[in-house]
């Protein structure tokens, strides 16, 4: 098993932390992992992205030009990364704010209404967990138990009281994900 993932969106959407939780879940699952962010002014807004690799073998390059899965959370990221998903790969995106939907016909495309659901739930902080839940429904690379364990390791102690809300959002994301029928 080897899964090469790009996660991209606005700074502040929890892109990097979603990647970190996914990577930590992989560690808990006994996998090899790498997490490499774009870093710099993006931290203050603008676009942020992170490449996460989960594998059962040693990872050579953490830097990649193409991905098995793209998880994109805004239009800029869709424009930037849609073409770097491998043929037959997976694209998961939040349609909120997307004016130009994906054009690829050789991908499995899924949507997750995470922004809408986060607003409805009144807890914007778990936005990225709806998305991660959706991804893990499509590709169950790690168990939800190991995600919780990953959260426990990646969150500071004082935030551990947030874990139940995160878990609920993960499970809700699993329910909300929809296969896009756009391209049949």
């Amino acid at each position: 098993m080897k899964e090469e993932i790009i996660i991209a969106g606005f700074g502040g959407q929890g892109v990097l932390s979603m990647g970190k939780i996914l990577a930590y879940s992989g560690v808990m699952q006994g996998q090899e992992v790498s997490w490499i962010p774009s870093y710099g002014p993006e931290m203050r807004g603008g676009t942020a992205n992170v490449t996460v690799i989960l594998s059962d073998r040693k990872i050579s390059s953490p830097v990649l030009q193409e991905f098995d899965t793209g998880i994109v959370l805004n239009q800029q990221s869709l424009d930037k990364f849609e073409d770097s998903i491998k043929a037959g790969g997976t694209l998961l995106y939040d349609p909120n704010g997307i004016t130009h939907p994906p054009h690829r016909t050789d991908l499995d495309i899924y949507t997750i209404d995470a922004a809408v659901e986060a607003a409805r739930s009144g807890n914007a902080k778990v936005f990225n967990m709806f998305v991660l839940g959706a991804f893990l429904r499509i590709k169950p690379l790690v168990t939800i138990e190991n995600v919780i364990e990953g959260l426990r390791h990646s969150l500071p102690e004082r935030a551990h009281k947030m874990i139940p809300a995160n878990e609920a959002a993960l499970r809700r994301g699993m329910e909300l994900v929809r296969k896009s029928e756009q391209h049949g």
Binding site: K20, A23, E32, V33, S34, I36, P37, Y39, P62
Partner: peptide, 10 residues
């Protein structure tokens, strides 16, 4: 380099 400094691994 910035890659090795900023990346996370086990």
């Amino acid at each position: 380099d910035g890659v090795i400094g900023q990346m996370m691994e086990k």
